[in-house]
Write a protein that binds this DNA or RNA. Structure first.
Length: 530
RNA sequence: GGCCGGAUGCCCGAGUGGACUAAGGGAGCGGAUUGCAAAUCCGCGAUUCGUGGGUUCGAAUCCCACUCCGGCCUCCA
């Protein structure tokens, strides 16, 4: 069965064929070289779970293509030039978000909560939120961030580029567009993209220039300087802007679509396999990216455009005014392991609207625990035999897949091939893992083989073998203390005291299990109550 | 106003014409085990798929109408 994804560009479920296929024509994904670009975070605030749903969708896509044997190169930008805040965006009027972030930082400094040394410096403010983002993304297991971490400093900019480091490329692309007749310098000195010069403008979003000019929104600004109301700016000269750079059109700042076109093409080449983002990116951002890139190169910019649906919280649209949004560090603070958040956010198929609740985190914790316990027991069973045989990694044994295991992998693949139907894929995993986990003992070949298969699917899921968030050292010390007290209480048959101690341990985020060889504890994946 | 999704058990969520006597996860209930604990194990749970029509030998799955929910058209993933 072919791998098919929903392509926003064609409004259709299309078979995914890599632009640079592998050597085997019957299975071109194996050994293929896939280039994907994902619209990343803006870094003038903490990313919230809605943002991360989109990044995690791209991550699951990345990991699944790798699961199929592809070599995936994913680039994700971190937007460190501000975007305008009010609705005059096509012209670049309005307050810059980074500027607002700078002001917020100044307020924090006054109130004694200094996050950066110099809150007047937008680069420091952006730098702070970049680090915060990387930290959150790392704990959630975003492969692109792990690759970024592993790379040396010079290569990092090619994995998670920042617009402020690529301004000359933006200028070069704008010059190219002017030369090609797709952009013009208007009477107000601003460089605009001429949407009427690009016949396909509107194809991605299903908009037409006609509708855009007469839409009930009516927000497409009428401005005399522009040739068409939908024309959007590429460069705006502005001596007073918080971040500005010299350019042929005067000192100023770039438009907010040009960064993705320039960086994606500069790093990955002029034609990409896949471009991802949230559904709100479809128009105008991605529409404008296509116009810019294809206007300059005449080549298709991206073969597949994939977009994730928005996240709702407790049945309502997430919005700052309602205050119903979560950021990762707050949830972690409440006692949820980041892997639980990861699972909850990926367990609903990316193209379905998803409702996030704290209850969903608890369900995720329970689901993960089953798989993690199984993995632990399988690992133990394998390690015991390998050690006894003096065969450190068990290399002498070639695991053969058990029939049920092959079925699981086949069903997992079939579901994921169907536009990343992760619910179906998870059902396959649990149908196999559930009965297996109920077995008291494993034979060595069985455990070894099962472990390998679990590792394979977890290459996509990323929640089974990744380490949990470590508990602070002082918590661990306290836990050990309470564990000893509890053991003593149980020996004395003072079960009331033992249960009270268990309660205290639970509050510390620890789960206690009594085994024949004594009590053991492990960090809880989620707090007791939502 | 235009465009686009969705409605499946207590909750989340697969399933797109016959193997659906509706996957999987969570919560619940009954039992086993245990310390009257935690964990674990066994068992139970939608005759029904928003409502009403229609097509068909056969529909959760196709068509029509209606109701409700959500999204986009403007920043936001």
């Amino acid at each position: 069965m072919p791998t098919r994804f929903y392509n926003t560009l064609t409004h259709n479920l299309d078979e995914f064929k890599p632009l640079r296929p592998g050597p085997d024509a019957s299975n071109p994904l194996v050994g293929s070289d896939i280039r994907m670009y994902s619209c990343g975070p803006t870094v003038y605030d903490y990313a919230h779970i809605g943002n991360f749903r989109a990044f995690l969708f791209a991550d699951v896509l990345h990991r699944y293509l790798a699961f199929l044997g592809a070599n995936v190169r994913q680039v994700m930008n971190m937007t460190d030039v501000g975007h305008m805040t009010d609705d005059q965006l096509a012209d670049g009027a309005g307050r810059d978000k980074l500027e607002l972030a700078v002001e917020k930082m100044k307020q924090n400094k006054k109130s004694g909560r200094a996050l950066v040394d110099n809150p007047n410096d937008p680069y420091q403010v952006a730098g702070y939120f970049i680090q915060a983002f990387l930290q959150d993304a790392r704990t959630l297991g975003l492969a692109v961030v792990l690759e970024h971490d592993a790379a040396d400093a010079t290569h990092r900019e090619n994995i998670m580029p920042r617009p402020t480091q690529h301004i000359p490329e933006f200028i070069a692309l704008i010059e190219r567009l002017i030369a090609a007749g797709h952009a013009y310098v208007a009477g107000d000195g601003v460089v605009y993209y001429d949407v009427r010069s690009f016949a396909d403008y509107g194809r991605l979003s299903g908009n037409s220039l006609e509708r855009l000019s007469h839409g009930a929104g009516g927000r497409v600004s009428e401005q005399a300087a522009k040739r068409h109301p939908a024309d959007f700016f590429l460069w705006k000269p502005d001596q007073t802007h918080i971040m500005r750079w010299p350019s042929p059109w005067g000192e100023g700042y770039p438009g907010w679509h040009i960064e993705c076109s320039a960086m994606a093409m500069g790093i990955l080449g002029e034609s990409l396999d896949i471009h991802t983002g949230g559904e709100d990116n479809i128009f105008p951002h991605h529409e404008c990216e296509i116009a810019q890139s294809q206007g300059a190169t005449g080549k298709p910019f991206a073969n597949f455009w994939m977009h994730t649906r928005h996240l709702m919280v407790n049945g309502e649209k997430m919005s700052k005014s309602k205050g119903n949004f979560f950021i990762i560090r707050d949830l972690v603070q409440k006692g949820y392991d980041p892997l639980v958040i990861r699972y909850a956010l990926i367990a609903t198929r990316y193209r379905e609207p998803m409702n996030f609740t704290l209850q969903s985190l608890h369900e995720a914790a329970a689901a993960i625990a089953t798989l993690r316990d199984l993995a632990q027991r399988l690992t133990g069973a394998v390690a015991a035999v390998d050690e006894a045989a003096g065969d450190g990694d068990g290399a002498a044994h070639t695991p053969t897949l058990e029939p049920g295991e092959q079925t699981m992998l086949d069903e997992f693949t079939r579901a994921m091939d169907d536009d990343l139907n992760i619910s179906g894929a998870l059902a396959a995993v649990f149908s196999w893992a559930g009965p297996l986990a109920r077995q008291r003992k494993f034979t060595y070949p069985q455990a070894r083989s099962a472990l390998q298969s679990l590792r394979r699917v977890d290459g996509v899921l990323g929640v089974v073998f990744a380490p949990l968030r470590p508990l602070p050292a002082q918590t661990v010390a306290r836990v050990n203390e309470l564990m000893q007290q509890r053991a003593a209480a149980r020996t004395a048959k003072d079960f009331a005291a033992a249960d009270l101690l268990r309660q205290q341990l639970t509050t510390l985020g620890v789960e206690v299990k009594d085994t024949p060889s004594g009590a053991v504890w492990q960090a809880r994946l989620a707090p007791m109550q939502p």
